[in-house]
């Protein structure tokens, strides 16, 4: 399999390690009331589709970036590749937009954003 890295171009999949389903980006809020269930779902349950699958790959023997690769699990064809940090930022911006009118919520996402930025660097 060849993964077309957004920065480095086509790279062999053997340079990467795979973590699994891209939903692992969306870590649940540990302080939420339903955190127990949310973490069980997050940690253990998988859609495991036959067909298109979004998954997290780590360029371990390259620039050590995390990628979200959309791949067909039936044919192994790589359909799309993006930086995981871009996808996480876009998702956060979307939720920030949605919750912008509420002052408290906006503050919270800003704080989360900062955390993500720290993690990314």
């Amino acid at each position: 399999m060849i993964i077309n890295h957004p920065h480095l171009g086509p790279r062999d999949a053997s340079e990467f390690t795979i973590l699994g389903d891209a939903s692992l980006i969306n870590r649940p809020d540990w302080q939420a009331r339903d955190a127990d269930d949310a973490f069980y779902n997050y940690q253990y349950l998988r859609d495991n589709p036959a067909g298109l699958h979004r998954e997290l790959w780590f360029h371990e023997q390259g620039d050590r970036s995390w990628l979200v690769v959309t791949r067909d699990t039936v044919t192994h064809a790589v359909i799309a590749v993006a930086l995981a940090s871009d996808i996480a930022k876009a998702a956060k911006a979307k939720t920030a937009q949605k919750t912008a009118p509420k002052k408290v919520a906006a503050k919270k996402t800003a704080a989360k954003k900062a955390v993500i930025k720290r993690n990314a660097t």
Binding site: M1, A13, I18, G20, A50, H53, E55, R71, T73, T75
Partner: peptide
């Protein structure tokens, strides 16, 4: 195993 999800 190869390490990635597969039905192939």
């Amino acid at each position: 195993i190869d390490g990635y999800n597969s039905y192939a």
